[in-house]
Amino acid sequence: MGSPVQLSLGVALKDEATFANFFEKDANAQVLAALKNLTATSSSEAQNIIIWGAPGCGVTHLLQAVCHDAYEARKSLQYLPMNELIGFDANDICEGLEGIDLVCIDGVDAICGNRSWEHAFFHLYNKIKEAGHTLVFSSHTSPPSLPILLPDLKSRLLASVVYHVESLTDTEKQNAMIMRAQARGMEMSEDVAKYIMQRAPRDTSELFELLDRLDDASLQQQRKLTIPFVKETLQF
C-alpha cells in the first residue's frame, strides 16, 4: 500500500482567473481596460462586448476575471461556458438572465448553426439590452466570420464593441508561467521555464494546467521546482 497522498485541495494558494494574474502585453492593454471598466462603472447603459482570439490567448481567463470583479462589486452575474452547456436546453438556461447585471457567454462559436441556441441568444440579447445590462461574449473566431445562421443574432453581435486578444509569444508565455507559478507560491527559474517551454504543449491553458500538477507534486514531495523534478513529474 503506497504512502497516503497529501491533498493540496484547500491548501494551495488561490490561482483563480483574475486580471491580476493575466499576463499583460501592450497589444492587449485596450481590451483589458475595456473589460475592467465594465464592472467599474455604474452606467445604466447597456454594454455589449465581444472578445476574440486564437485558442489559448486567454479569452476564458478574461471572462472569468470580469466575473470575479463583478462578484467583488456585488453585482449579479452568470457565466456560461458554451462548450459545456451546448447539450442542455437553451431556453431553460437563458430563462430570467435579463435580470442579471452581467452575463458572460464563453465560446459563442460552439452554438453557431444550432437553431435553438441561436434563437435563445437572440432573444436574450434583446432582453438584456432592454434591461440596460451587460453582455460579454468570447469567441475563437473573428466575429464577422462566425457561421451564425440567424442574421438577426449576427448583426446584433456585430453591433457590439469587438476586441481582439493577441496571443502571447513563446517568451511571454515563459514569463507568464513564471508569474503564475509565483502567484501559487512556487519559485520557478528561467531555466526551468525554458525547459518546460521546449517540451510542453505551447497552448497556454495546457501549459498552466501543468502548473497544477507541479504544484501538487511539489507540495506532496516537499521539493522545489528543479529541472530533474519537472522532468520526473511531467515525464518529459
Binding site: 472569468q64 466575473c67 449579479s76 452575474l77 457565466y79 456560461l80 430570467g96 438572465l97 442579471i100
Partner: peptide, 26 residues
C-alpha cells in the same frame, strides 16, 4: 465555480437563515 457558485447571491434581508438566490431554475 464561475458557472454555478458565483452567480448565487445571498438574500440580505434574511437574518435567521441563509437564503441563496439563483438566477433561474436551471
Amino acid at each position: 465555480f464561475n458557472t454555478w457558485i458565483r452567480p448565487l447571491r445571498v438574500d440580505d434581508t434574511q437574518e435567521e437563515l441563509l437564503r441563496l438566490i439563483a438566477p433561474n431554475r436551471f
